[in-house]
Design a protein around this nucleic acid. Structure first.
Lengths: 126, 126
DNA sequence: GTGTATGCAAAGCTTTTGCATAGGT
DNA sequence: ACCTATGCAAAAGCTTTGCATACAC
C-alpha cells in the first residue's frame, strides 16, 4: 500500500508553489527547503510514482532537457525564455495538424516549443 | 590543420546515405559498415567537429533523444513514426509564431515535433 | 618526419538499483 | 509490529577525456 511520506508531500508542494515545468535540479533544490534531508534517489523514485499516478508528466525539452509538469492542463505548448531560462506553459494551440505534414503522413499528435523572451524579461535592460 | 580522415569521411557518407536525422547508435552502426574499427569516441569527436564546421546540427527530440542532421535544409519540422521509430524532416511550416503565444511574449523561434505513422508504415498490417 | 586524430580505457554526469533501517500505517 | 520508502553508496547508461600510437600530410 502506498504511504503518504513527508518527502513525496514536499515534492508535490514544490509543484504547487511553482506552476511551471521543473527539472530534477529545481525539484531537489526547492524540495530541500521543505525537507532538508531530501535525497536525489528519493526524488527520482517519487517522480516515477507521481507519473504512474497520472499526477505528473515528463517532457523532454529541446533546450532544457527533462522537465516534469503537473497534468490536467490540457493540450498546450511550451515557451522557453532565453533571458531567465525558465519554461512556461502557454494555453491554446495554433497548429493545424492536418496541414502540417505532406500527404501520406498520418499525424496523431504534436509538440511545439517556442523560444524568445518572456513578459517579465522584456524591457529589462541587461 | 584539419586532416581528412577515413573515419570522418565515413561518418559524412553515413549522412549522405541516410537523409534523415540519426542518433549516435545509428551513426556508429552504419559507420562500422564502412570502417570496421570505428570507435564511439571518434564518432562523438567528429560529430562535434562537423557541428563546428556547420555541416551538422544537433537536435534533442522529445521521444528519440539526441539526433544529428545535415544543415542547409532551411526551417523544417520533424515527424516521428511510431511504427518504424524513424524521424523524418518535413518541409514547410504551418505555425504562425505571432499567434502562438499570449501578448507580452516575444517569440523568436520555434520547433515542432509531429507524431504518427509515416507513409511506408500506413496500411502495413502489424 | 611531424603532429593531429584514432582506439582504448578511464572518468564524468545523470539516472537507477541494492541494501540496511527509518518511519508511515 | 509490519513492511514500504528513505538515504546512502554502488552500478548502469551515455558522453567526454587522457594517453600511447597510427596515419594524414
Amino acid at each position: 500500500m502506498r504511504r503518504n511520506t513527508t518527502q513525496r508531500k514536499a515534492i508535490e508542494e514544490v509543484f504547487r508553489q511553482h506552476e511551471r515545468p521543473l527539472g530534477v535540479d529545481d525539484i531537489l533544490a526547492y524540495g530541500r527547503k521543505l525537507v532538508e534531508s531530501l535525497n536525489q534517489a528519493t526524488v527520482y523514485r517519487n517522480l516515477k510514482i507521481l507519473i504512474d499516478d497520472g499526477w505528473l508528466i515528463r517532457i523532454t525539452h529541446p533546450s532544457l532537457g527533462v522537465l516534469y509538469e503537473r497534468t490536467g492542463k490540457g493540450h498546450h505548448h511550451h515557451f522557453h525564455c532565453r533571458e531567465c531560462n525558465r519554461a512556461f506553459e502557454l494555453p491554446g494551440c495554433a497548429l493545424k495538424e492536418k496541414e502540417s505534414a505532406p500527404d501520406g503522413f498520418v499525424v496523431e499528435d504534436h509538440e511545439v516549443f517556442l523560444f524568445g523572451v518572456c513578459p517579465s524579461c522584456v524591457g529589462v535592460t541587461k
